[in-house]
Design a protein around this nucleic acid. Structure first.
Lengths: 218, 218
DNA sequence: ACAAATTTTTAGTTTTGTCTAAATTTAATT
DNA sequence: AATTAAATTTAGACAAAACTAAAAATTTGT
């Protein structure tokens, strides 16, 4: 597999979780499924291009330019995800792979027109915020369902575990992004929950609840 | 520049003008702005993969598999062009470069959903036909406007006379490449035409009509 | 049909991204 | 502080795609 500069930038951004932190070459290698020595080589090149700051043995961070590049990629990725779900009837667990390809298309006009077509969405189908053209972010206040106190409610906006089995479980149990959730009760000894979702009451294990993100509404 | 297998397939297809002809390595090199020796190398590889037929010194042609690949690329390219014009307000002459990138996105579901979203269009914004999912399509027919029968429509794709006065005339009368034209009526004695272009009806002299090329769409 | 011109391929080199294995630097432990 | 362990880089090699220049096959012109 041959990886692009953009793939490296993205990995560095994601490991730093959007903060402008310094990350290790090892962690980048692991994230990208490649070898640390390959990362070192590429990082040198990116450094020469002014996209990252790099001091041998001291890790990598994105320059301002690099951050802009990363945010543009995130913006494009999430806009395409919205497009696929809203306009092409993809389900929210099918979009990632395709968006991964589409995010590399180079055309500012395309991105901006897409944004307009979609009505300037603020979040993607997974509940993650979409950076504006200028790269501004509204940070969503997200909590794991397992950490939401009894009586509080919110909107299901994302998952921590995005593996196919977990996504399938949610689908089977009719739990989807955008669903309103009310935490009704909690079993102290096993952490399982009683929740109201849509018009039905269901029981959720601690394991499930700790992989579902809610945006608290009340 | 590093070219993909798909780029080679596409070039071979285009040089053969859609017919399954044998083309020279030299012509492929010229089309792709690369060197004949590079073409030889790649063509060998494509041959091993069963995408082209290749005999040294005898030229290349697409296998059935290669043709399918080429048609899928054409289909995707033209569907994306329609999308860009219809949904994102791109103009006629801005779409090619972006579609050139989008055509490489791999997802059958994406292509088919896009087709559906666009209402299963039969031609792209340049009046070129869009292959069906099975790879079937009618060949584009280019005719002088003066030779288009009453009732037929097409897309304005070129001029025979490219003199300044003629181009000025077109501009003044708001006739541009990419415009859809419907031939409504024809005066027998002077060959002048009544046409519908965009949302207006206009009268065109025989002289003008015999210098404008249309690609027949229906 | 034969020599000249053209086309196409082959051989050898370059570039780019990757890998393995060895060397080096940094971090951890006692 | 010295030794060991872990992380990171360097050095050397490989694979893929491309290029240059030389060799070989084909085509053309007489």
């Amino acid at each position: 597999m041959t990886l692009s500069e953009e793939d490296y930038i993205k990995a560095i951004y994601h490991i730093g979780k959007g903060e402008n932190t310094t990350v290790s070459t090892n962690s980048v290698a692991e994230e990208m499924d490649t070898k640390p020595s390959s990362v070192t080589d590429m990082v040198k090149k990116l450094s020469e291009k002014g996209l990252v700051n790099y001091k041998p043995y001291k890790g990598v961070s994105l320059t301002e330019h690099g951050q802009k590049t990363a945010l543009t990629l995130v913006r494009k990725h999430r806009l395409w995800e919205v497009f696929l779900v809203e306009k092409l009837d993809f389900s929210w667990d099918e979009v990632h792979e395709v968006a991964e390809q589409l995010e590399h298309i180079k055309s500012e006009k395309l991105t901006d027109s897409l944004d307009k077509l979609l009505g300037y969405p603020e979040v993607d189908p997974h509940g993650d915020p979409i950076p504006s053209k200028k790269g501004e972010f509204k940070k969503a206040i997200k909590k794991l369902l397992s950490e939401v106190p009894i009586g509080k409610s919110g909107v299901c906006v994302g998952v921590k575990d995005s593996s196919a089995p977990f996504l399938k479980f949610l689908d089977k149990n009719n739990i989807a992004l955008g669903d309103a959730v009310l935490v009704m009760d909690k079993e102290e000894f096993d952490g399982s929950l009683h929740i109201r979702i849509g018009d039905r009451d269901i029981h959720i294990s601690q394991q499930i609840a700790s992989n579902l993100y809610l945006k608290i509404t009340e």
